[in-house]
Design a binder for these strands. Structure first.
Lengths: 146, 146
DNA sequence: CTACTTGCAAAGTGTTTGCAGTTGA
DNA sequence: TCAACTGCAAACACTTTGCAAGTAG
């Protein structure tokens, strides 16, 4: 066994990723990518558009939507439809997780449970299905201290 | 302990329910109610509108939407947003259950798991929240027989 | 009778798309 | 260079709403 280079960084370099997919790195895309990298939350398209506009006022909302779709198709981000509002996006670095949405503030807390995952797989199997994807959202409100 | 009347029928009478809420039973409402009672599935507004039109061609899509909202607010039906398409509705008789959606046919299979419910409550508690509602959807495809 | 409902058309959201001009590789 | 990309405005799908006419109780 020989020494080798350290494992790749946990956060992929989207620009490189895109370029390798034969996609051009344009100004609007670089701007949006920068925003996604800097913002840890679950913003919607309008939110991203607002931040992008602050950096480059020429950016259009269409381009935001087109870029989000592009990134989603590449697997670089996930799209969520919490409640019924607009789609909200999240970078797809880490592992799978589910969401708890604070119905009062809209805040999103991420969590994951191997046991729930396992139960879902089991249930799907019993029903004769293979899981392609799933969505688990808990809507709650902060517990008042007694 | 005295003998008493048998438990109420499992399927509530929506007309009575509505009347008791001070809501008028109009022709369109009666038609829609009839369709919901007869159809066991998870139809969307357009689907309900189509079936209603067959019974009473004068019904408008707006009235379908207004009626679904009314019933939802009364707790008589649940509204779901599977994938990203239109809202789909389901009568709220029985117990709580979750959904497995066949991504190829759109078919919806209902299931419920006390263990998953319990795990969710536990997770929410650990995060400091009380659950208000939740949504668990499994998207899958029928397993091919080997 | 008259307040609640309706149908219709118009408005509203969130998102996608056609097109002519722009730009990255 | 020149296909990929963009901004813009128009189109879209789904849903809600204003209003004048209709109707249940």
């Amino acid at each position: 066994m020989t020494r080798s280079a350290p494992p790749p960084p946990e956060k992929p370099d989207y620009e490189t990723l895109l370029r390798e997919s034969g996609v051009r790195i344009t100004r609007p895309r670089r701007t949006i990518l920068g925003i996604l990298a800097a913002q840890p939350g679950h913003p919607d398209a309008l939110e991203i558009f607002r931040r992008a506009s602050a950096v480059d006022p020429a950016i259009s909302l269409s381009t935001v939507y087109r870029t989000m779709r592009l990134l989603e198709e590449m697997g670089a981000i996930h799209r969520h439809a919490f409640g019924d509002g607009p789609s909200r996006f999240e970078t797809a670095d880490g592992d799978h997780h589910d969401h708890l949405i604070d119905i009062e503030s809209g805040e999103v807390v991420e969590f994951s449970s191997e046991r729930i995952e396992a139960l879902q797989t089991e249930i799907a199997r019993e029903l004769g299905y293979d899981i392609v994807s799933h969505r688990l959202e808990i809507y709650g409100r902060k517990r008042r201290p007694a």
